[in-house]
Design a protein around this nucleic acid. Sequence first.
DNA 1: CCATATAAGACCTTTTTGATCCTATATTGC
DNA 2: GCAATATAGGATCAAAAAGGTCTTATATGG
Lengths: 134, 134
Amino acid sequence: MLHITRRGDYAIRGMVYLAGQPADKVTLLGDMAAAVEASPAILAKIFQHLSKVGLVSSYRGTGGGFVLGRPAEAITLLEIVEAVEGPIILNRCLIAKGTCGRDSFCPVHPVWGRVQEKMRSMLGEYTLKDLAGK
Amino acid sequence: MLHITRRGDYAIRGMVYLAGQPADKVTLLGDMAAAVEASPAILAKIFQHLSKVGLVSSYRGTGGGFVLGRPAEAITLLEIVEAVEGPIILNRCLIAKGTCGRDSFCPVHPVWGRVQEKMRSMLGEYTLKDLAGK
DNA sequence: CCATATAAGACCTTTTTGATCCTATATTGC
DNA sequence: GCAATATAGGATCAAAAAGGTCTTATATGG
């Protein structure tokens, strides 16, 4: 199906929430979960991954939590979505050249390519700064 | 995940194949299945559905098979995709107004709306005539 | 009537997604 | 050092979606 998953949705919500907090404030997972209306357990999983890829920094222990890994204006929607869901690939044909076999003559292939690139470029235009309205 | 399913892919392949056949030629399911490299059983399911919604006409019995339900220039990629996969809805928020609760203040909502509409309009621009190159 | 070919639905397997639980580890404050 | 706090990470489980097969109708042409 042609839609993002809840993980992607929760990730975006959480990141927008972090971007809306005072700079360098370490946000508790629990606070974030309440604000974005997601279970803390599932949000934890998602943000562990975002931490691994550097989109957020995490701190353990008392006073620990999450902070944006980069300034809000340097993080795009596209990055968040692809970090959680993997690269945006609209059809299997587009995974890599030669994957499809019909590559050389299929007239639909380039259409998917164009739509995919438009989609990626649109998502790449929005930063967390835009979305948090700060 | 952000991609079309095999059903969608097979549907498009088959429809493009039909569009490439001589007008009004009734095409055997088996021939189409071989041409698009899909199992006849699965293609049958897909085209039964396309027949229901009028994108193809079907004929039973000896000499039966499938024909485009409308001229190739009057069938768009968008129609085929949405017939098989359901409406393109990039995030649950966009299913209907009031579905989300965060609708009124969520800054990401309109972004998904814009991307979704761009995607739909792009797919709506391509007809089977364009793709079959006739 | 019989061979052909789609229609329709039941059914099954695999993969993906969504979610929870438990244990480990790091940090802070006392 | 010790206790409280908070994320890290892995194991596990259930629900849903996707992919595919099979069997039984039903319509058509000869």
